[in-house]
């Protein structure tokens, strides 16, 4: 049991570090989701199935989902702004 716990803890440390050092947001979110699952596993091994279930639903699904949606929205807004600026530019040029 102890070996299992130690292994999972090491995995948690590795994935968490990986998330922090990933610079690209989308990849970071995927990493975060993976980290959430590992954390859920840890809770499960520590005999807290309730918390593990919450962790997997929230940490591995809902939270990355929110991030993904925000990133998508930011990208779309940026594109839209660019497009509007371009069209204004064109209008001015005309």
């Amino acid at each position: 049991m102890l070996v299992l716990q130690a292994t999972i803890l090491i995995f948690v440390a590795i994935t968490a570090t990986a998330v922090v050092f990933t610079r690209q947001p989308v990849r970071q979110v995927v990493g975060l989701s993976f980290y959430g699952i590992i954390l859920g596993l840890l809770f499960f091994i520590l005999q807290a199935p309730d918390v593990a279930l919450s962790q997997i639903t929230i940490g591995a699904v809902a939270l990355p989902l929110m991030f993904m949606l925000s990133l998508a929205k930011i990208r779309r807004d940026a594109e839209e702004r660019k497009r509007r600026e371009e069209s204004e530019h064109r209008r001015e040029a005309a």
């Binding site: 309730d50 279930l53 639903t57």
Partner: peptide
């Protein structure tokens, strides 16, 4: 998960998220 929250692990929060997906 929602309906068996008081019997097995899980409950309104977890089941709610699953339903929302």
């Amino acid at each position: 998960i929602v309906a068996h929250g008081h019997l097995t692990p899980g409950g309104g929060f977890q089941g709610g998220v699953i339903l929302a997906t």
